[in-house]
Amino acid sequence: MPWMFPTIWKNLFSRPVTRRYPFKDIREPFPGYRGKIYFDTNKCDLCGDCARVCPAEAIEVDSENKQIKYYPFRCIYCGTCVETCLQGAITQDEHYSPPNTEKIEELYKIEA
């Protein structure tokens, strides 16, 4: 009982440690955080390696229509596709993918 007292007494008179997300004290993620996945439509050569290695099957490469479908709500953000891509066409952001009221999918048209 008494051993908890100093801690709570100290807490009572000091500023709370809470980060006031989403109003202020928004902390930038650490460098290298595995966040959102982006495709570079200029570099991609539609080889389909990313779709093959993806453990969650979140990427669909359609080489006939020259497009990539990416499902952020299937992706587990492991970053394997980023490591696998030989063209360096896939990049990973340091910010997490935001919640949404519906499961959107992202369509990338490949120009090359």
């Binding site: 993620p29 650490f30 290298g32 955080y33 595995r34 953000y77 492991c78 970053g79």
Partner: peptide, 12 residues
Amino acid sequence: SEMTAGHRIIQS
């Protein structure tokens, strides 16, 4: 964990 592995709990 986040600093070294890039995620809070699933280090991967």
